[in-house]
Amino acid sequence: MLKQLRASAGTVGIHTALVIAIIISSVPFYWAAQNSIKFTRDTIRSTPTLWGFDITADPYRKFWFRSEDQSMWQVALFVLALAAVISALVWAARRAETTWPWNLGVALTLWIGMQLFPRVFDMNREFDYFINSVYVTVLTVIISIGIGLLAGYALARYSGLSGAVILIVALAFRALPRTAFVLPYFIVAKELGILDSRLVIVLALVAINQPFTIWMLRSFFMEVPREIEEAAMMDGATRLQAFRMAVIPIMWPGIIATSLFTMLLAYNEFLFVRVLAVTEWTLPVAISALTGGESTTTLTEAAAASVSITLPIVIVIIMFQKHLVKGLGAGAVKG
């Protein structure tokens, strides 16, 4: 009886400690979310207004839309319609045999929605920055993972000295300060007149992320038994066919985990975009310009911008949270 009581008191203690931890980790988000729906008059008082303030969508409207009288109801309706189409596709995918045409469908719907948005509504430049963010993130993930998979697989299977050397040199590169790369990029890009190209930014991000990608993918490949591709090669498949048909299908958890980290890196990158882009900004640079120096942006609008930038990444991470945890466990096995 006493033991049980002590055990349950212990559980309560653990939950209390965890609740305190999540309060600390989420307080800034709570504060920003609250500020983003306030009127400015409620943010400049000396005592913070915690409740009982009037709610408004104005900060969001100012951040995303150019015209003053943009109806938020129309926007909400459009977003809802888009969400409905996507959920219908996702729902259908769960019942269908193959999933990739549906995934393609979801991606296409999102893409069309993104193209339609500025045609239907009078969007600010911030929407272009959002599109740039999506473009840079998606391309960086695809290219990084594409070449990283090949290299990671080769490094997991090859036992020659050059493999070890490549891994260690890559690890050393992972340690270097970003400024050591970005200044030469800037000069070369400026001389060649390719500054402000999104593709250059993508290539730069792929390069600096490559060491991490090959290490992480390699540690996933190490867990795939050699017998799998050896069996396929016995049946007459070439190494590349065995890799594509036998190894990749069981690598998906590793691919997803690595993609998530690459996505975070590309979406959150500030320094490279700040240096290599003149007008083709992504969202982190846009919000830093919005809030830094002599800018007249109000606190509420900055908060709305912060929430808008954070939400997409939070949604994706929550969807794939399990993969992220698994990835860190596996990524470190051979670390």
Binding site: S25, L283, I287
Partner: peptide, 8 residues
């Protein structure tokens, strides 16, 4: 705190 854009 880990996934949010550091600038933000």
């Amino acid at each position: 705190p880990f996934i949010v854009t550091p600038v933000v």
